[in-house]
Simulated scan of single mutants.
Amino acid sequence: MAGGGRTLLDRVEAHGHRGSRGLRPENTLPAFAHALALGVDVIELDVGLTADGEVVVHHDQALSALTARDTAPSRADDPMFPYVGKPIRDLTLAQIKTVDAGMRRASDTDPFVLTQLPIVGTRVPTLAEVCDLVVRLDAHTTDLAIEVKTDPGWPDHEVARLVEAVADVMDIWGLTRRTRLLGFDWRVLGHARRLAPQAAGRVALIEPETLKPGSAWLAGVVPPEPADPLDGTAWTRLLTGAISAGATVLSPERTLVRPELIGEAHRLGLAVTVWTVNEPAEMARLIEMGVDGIVTDHPDRLRLVMAERGLPLPPCHGPRTSVEAV
């Protein structure tokens, strides 16, 4: 690799965030298909569990007005309608399937409104439908990074139930060994270790909010002190705690990444995948720093940066009509 950077994986992985949020409606089948056609090592997605026990793909724990619009009730005089704004866990799959997830709400401050191709009529997919897409496109080189959307306020048995539901879907589709389970709530990691021991990885997500003093997100692990959040000793305690919780990968928000953090994570055997990076200059800087993977809304940009640096590119899968790819 150019420069002094070193990766634990001996290559840099390209992760399509919510499929390809910068290019297609996030967390939808078109977004995942587009990412696969461009060529990524991993497609990242978020999941929740419906009232009738179906695993669906959506970023928030409630149907977000940013990415979802009501159309019509699933049945006449449904007292739950409108559905947007209501928790996914309170809605059935039939209710969620009425929502149009193909267009972002217009906003002058949302960069994706300018770069994302609207696809009106796109529905919220189930995790099984995403698996079907991956299998149909024979995307055998692509892993799935599934963020299990829980909250530290949830009882532990509810966290376990969602992890188990995800694990069951992946097992049915024969994709467990290509699955990485992610969580800001580090209880997810322990349940994943128990319920999906053959999964490809367990990813400890961190951001400044979850590292605040007294954080309930880290399953009892003590975060670094705010006076010196990048102190090496404090990071060692945090990383060791993540490993004890079940992590095999650390995934920090981009502003937290420093060479010292990467070096200590690698020393302890943790790969480092950074999120969410959309500017080519920052992608190049992080590659130079030695990260193992980059999560991006713009896989097309990341492929260009990787190609310019002579890094191996992930294969493309599926139709390439109207797709810009290296």
Rank of each mutant, 00 (worst) to 15 (best):
Ala2Ser: 11
Asp10Gly: 05
Asp10Gln: 10
Ala14Thr: 12
Arg18Trp: 04
Gly19Cys: 08
Gly22His: 12
Pro25Asn: 13
Leu29Val: 14
Pro30Met: 08
Ala35Pro: 09
Ala35Tyr: 05
Leu38Trp: 08
Leu38Phe: 08
Ile43Asn: 04
Leu45Lys: 06
Leu45Phe: 10
Gly53Phe: 10
Gly53Lys: 09
Val56Asn: 09
His59Asp: 10
Ala62Asn: 14
Ala65Arg: 15
Ala65Ile: 12
Arg69Asn: 11
Ser74Met: 11
Pro82Asn: 07
Tyr83Ser: 07
Leu93His: 13
Ala94Ile: 08
Lys97Tyr: 12
Val99Glu: 13
Asp108Met: 15
Asp110Glu: 14
Phe112Met: 14
Leu117Asp: 12
Ile119Cys: 14
Ile119Asn: 14
Thr122Ile: 11
Thr122Met: 12
Thr122Phe: 11
Thr122Trp: 11
Cys131Asp: 07
Asp132Met: 13
Glu147Asp: 08
Trp154Asp: 14
Pro155Leu: 06
Met170Ala: 02
Leu182Thr: 01
Phe184Gly: 03
Arg193Leu: 11
Arg194Asn: 00
Gln198Thr: 01
Ala199Met: 05
Glu209Trp: 07
Ala219His: 03
Gly220Cys: 00
Val222Lys: 04
Ala242Asn: 01
Val249Met: 05
Leu250Arg: 00
Arg267His: 15
Leu268Trp: 11
Gly269Ala: 13
Leu270Gly: 06
Ala271Glu: 10
Ala271Tyr: 07
Pro280Phe: 10
Ala281Thr: 15
Glu282Met: 15
Ala284His: 04
Ile287Gly: 01
Asp300Phe: 03
Asp300Thr: 09
Leu304Trp: 06
Pro312Met: 01
Leu313Ser: 04
Leu313His: 04
Pro315Trp: 09
Pro319Asn: 09
